[in-house]
């Protein structure tokens, strides 16, 4: 079922319809992302998906924390809530419980969602609250100047790891799955089409859906580790992703390549895990919430991504 999104050869580019432009908050432009940053690609892909579904985003709320990733919600013409560092999921939980009819999308980063906000991530997943969380992982703290993040791989250079990172990194997707997320996917800024596909599925999924997006930070992660510019970093995502069917439990590690720089070897991407259970709204008996029964109508089944 999910083979289409797994085959790199079939993925070319996001169709440019121009529809997504009307969902932008033009008054907020110009944006603050660096040249070569992958976050804008994901913003564009996200709006493309939403523009196929909605004429406007009156009933979609974006909630984000602090960091480069979180700033992208400011460019979306919706109700956008730019919260405190690490806490967007807590704000989103309150908003969703008070207004279950709204589509709530949380944008977070690897520092925001896995370090300072790690507790909120695992509890949102545990509760299976019906919202979508997109975590843009650029493997570094970009906004504060390139410090090591909990996703920075072992050995990588950052401004706080001048001799190379000595801490192991998180596998965000594995963490979300273990904590109880009922939809887990991983995408890359290199293949916005894959992101678009899993993002659409995540919106349809009733329950806590989590997408980790491997993005790139050219200014800090790329420069410090001599990965080249934005295009080089995107190409590195392509080179080291031969299959999405690899073991989800496999952690990103550093393996030396020809030029002896640390890189991620293989990261499974695409839909990684899917299951169905009652959402927080259902267990609380909140009126106006979606029913998780649709998850089980045959449209979805558990672990398809891994069987593909």
């Amino acid at each position: 079922m999910s083979t289409a999104i797994t085959d790199a050869a079939t993925v070319t580019r996001v169709p440019v319809t121009g529809k997504e432009k009307r969902l932008l908050r033009h008054a907020m432009m110009p944006h603050m992302l660096c040249p070569g940053c992958g976050h804008g690609i994901i913003l564009d892909a996200m709006l493309s998906v939403l523009s196929e579904r909605y004429d406007n985003l009156d009933n979609v709320a974006f909630v984000a924390g602090i960091g480069c990733s979180s700033r992208i919600i400011g460019y979306i013409d919706a109700c956008t809530l730019h919260t405190t560092h690490g806490r967007p999921l807590s704000f989103a939980t309150g908003l969703k419980l008070a207004r279950p009819e709204l589509t709530v999308i949380v944008i977070t980063g690897d520092g925001d969602g896995l370090s300072i906000g790690g507790n909120h991530l695992i509890h949102a997943a545990r509760r299976n609250i019906d919202l979508t969380c997109v975590l843009l992982n650029n493997e570094i703290y970009g906004m504060t100047g390139g410090q090591a993040a909990p996703t920075t791989v072992l050995g990588a250079y950052t401004t706080t790891t001048p001799q190379g990172n000595t801490q192991h990194s998180f596998d965000a997707a594995e963490l979300a799955k273990a904590a109880g997320a009922t939809f887990v996917a991983r995408a890359q800024s290199y293949r916005p089409q894959v992101f678009g596909e899993v993002f659409g599925q995540a919106l349809d999924h009733v329950g806590f859906s989590f997408i980790e997006v491997m993005s790139d930070c050219t200014e800090y992660f790329g420069r410090t580790n001599r990965f080249g510019g934005g295009a080089d970093m995107l190409m590195s995502q392509a080179r080291y992703e031969p299959s999405i069917d690899a073991d989800l439990a496999r952690r990103p590690t550093v393996e030396p390549i020809a030029d002896a720089q640390p890189v991620r070897p293989v990261l499974p991407t695409g839909l990684l895990y899917r299951s169905s259970r009652l959402t927080l709204e259902e267990t609380m008996g909140i009126k106006g919430a979606r029913s998780s029964e649709v998850n089980e109508t045959g449209q979805y089944s558990t672990d398809q991504g891994r069987d593909a």
Partner: peptide, 14 residues
């Protein structure tokens, strides 16, 4: 922190 965060999210919801 989550308590007050959720309260603020709910408050913005009305």
């Amino acid at each position: 922190m989550a308590s007050l965060g959720a309260v603020l999210g709910a408050s913005l919801g009305g």
